[in-house]
Nucleic acid binder design. Sequence first.
DNA 1: ATCTTGACCTAAT
DNA 2: CATTAGGCCAAGA
Length: 119
Amino acid sequence: MNHHQHDFFDKVYQMVKLIPKGRVSTYGAIARLVGSPQSARMVGWALNASHKQSDIPAHRVVNRHGLLTGKHHFKDLNEMQHLLNSEGIQVIDDQIVNFENLLWDPLKNKDESQRLLIS
DNA sequence: ATCTTGACCTAAT
DNA sequence: CATTAGGCCAAGA
């Protein structure tokens, strides 16, 4: 891995770690947060690599519609949903219930960008 | 080296 | 509402 990628992956991990329990974010939102708005796909790659490590809540990242498109990359098919359920999030047919209100996107929500500056 | 495939997204049509 | 084009770039069926 070269320096660019290392920085990118690391930034992704730092941002994903900031997603609060009971909330979710999206690949695109994380990409914007790390300053690479067109690299949503790479966020998926980073999360894929993150499974080797722990303490990175990859299950809190879903696609822009609130679908659990990454579920096949967890060790069990239902692990992603189970983890979300255990944090109080309801999922029906791979769709996060009440997605609009659970979305964590600091660049689009004033309160949350404030929280981001503090951390 | 070249080509394809993705945990994706936005903008334009 | 749907479809498409383009961008991103690591890994390798």
